[in-house]
Design a protein around this nucleic acid. Structure first.
Lengths: 226, 226
DNA sequence: CTAATTTCTGACCAAATGGTCAAGAATTTA
DNA sequence: TAAATTCTTGACCATTTGGTCAGAAATTAG
């Protein structure tokens, strides 16, 4: 019996493996390109709604329009598909943060970041759910990434925010926890969309617009220097 | 093949079933009392970390210190255990909101609510994760509850907040989305604890204290009337 | 103490699922 | 066109897992 406890693909890989045909010298054919893409798209859809354990290779194959053995011809294991999808979406999910610019106007920079994060939740809720699931279950597959790349990025941007603070441009609060607040409030609309739909009925876009104006009011007032 | 899509116990039960020995006329023995309790505790632990699909009856039984068939003597199905745990924790999880008092001081009332929610995340992270998982996967088991009891409660309290607003006691923002913000920011520390541990290292209590002071600053400044 | 009832367990079953494989179909290359 | 390579699939296997059951063990009732 395995020692794996949670809804995870594997116990503790230190880092994400590069699954792209990195070392391989074989050229990738057009069929490969197309099918891998189909699989990844299908996998994102299935994993994000069903979680790792809840997803079955059969479902993913079906969603990708191919047979299970055929899918396994492109990705050897279920875990390999999962890791590939995580990899594929991680960068774009974190990208807005990299654009926090120390030389810009603090209030404007932060609002821009919040807005972009909310926009990501609006347009790519599946990515958000994928990560939410992963982290909720202990982040066994991206633990290494969190501890290295993400930590470094967060430390860098926390430094930027701290700089703004000591210049008296924004209120004095913990920088990392401010980032947590931004993540929590924006991703909430993707991860818990079922709940927000029920409790704040109406058109989806309308809901996101109201969310945006609420976030603007509170964050902008909340971080303004006194 | 079943039609169930996500990591869910069942497709769409309108409401949570009362699983307590409601209709039964048999008395509950002491052994029953003890073992049911053990099972529910174990189940909360396992379900919250592994999700519904990731949890196995065997693991729950093991955590409860009994054999699988014995556990199934007390709860007929895995789903029955899951629903029972959800039921057991739902009320206490939502209870702080019921205490939002229209006659109290708005700022103080709201801060009190935020503080209590954060405290719940600190002391009962498992409950938070259980719900996060459930809602993330479409809330198939508590959909009915969300649409009735929770919706009613939220509407009532949104009314209270609206009242404060029209009296000019707090800033003019969407009430329901303010509630979302409070949920998102406080539950974040339970649901994504792995991430917060990595990015904001140090003692757990210290982290929660810093979170609290950050939330206080932003929320209190953010909702203050201009 | 004996009988009735409750509690508990090992053995077992059926379905679901991750993964394999030999061989056929399609495509590319020479 | 023929050979080589890539792509695809039905059939199959092993493991996991939710759940059953007959009966043993313990507990309670008379």
């Amino acid at each position: 019996m395995n020692d794996v406890t949670a809804d995870s693909a594997i116990a503790r890989p230190a880092t994400l493996d590069k699954l792209a045909d990195a070392g391989s010298h074989k050229k990738t054919t057009r069929i490969q390109e197309r099918n891998r893409q189909r699989i990844l798209t299908a996998a994102l859809s299935v994993f994000s709604t069903a979680g790792y354990r809840g997803a079955t290779i059969d479902r993913i194959a079906q969603a990708a329009g191919m047979s299970k053995p055929n899918l396994l011809y492109y990705f050897k294991t279920k875990q390999a598909i999962y890791i590939a999808v995580l990899e594929l979406t991680l960068d774009s999910w974190l990208e807005p943060m990299t654009r926090l610019d120390a030389s810009g106007d603090p209030i404007e920079e932060l609002w821009c970041y919040i807005e972009e994060k909310l926009e990501l939740s609006r347009q790519h809720p599946q990515a958000s759910k994928l990560f939410a699931n992963e982290i909720l279950h202990g982040a066994p597959n991206i633990e290494g990434y969190l501890k290295t790349s993400l930590k470094q990025l967060v430390e860098e941007k926390a430094g930027v925010i701290r700089h703004w603070m000591s210049a008296g441009k924004i209120a004095d609060i913990d920088q990392v926890h401010l980032i947590f607040m931004i993540w929590a409030t924006t991703q909430h609309y993707a991860d818990f969309d079922v709940q927000t739909e029920i409790l704040a009925p109406g058109e989806r876009d309308e809901r996101f617009d109201t969310a945006k104006s609420t976030l603007r009011t509170i964050f902008m007032l909340g971080i303004k220097p006194r």
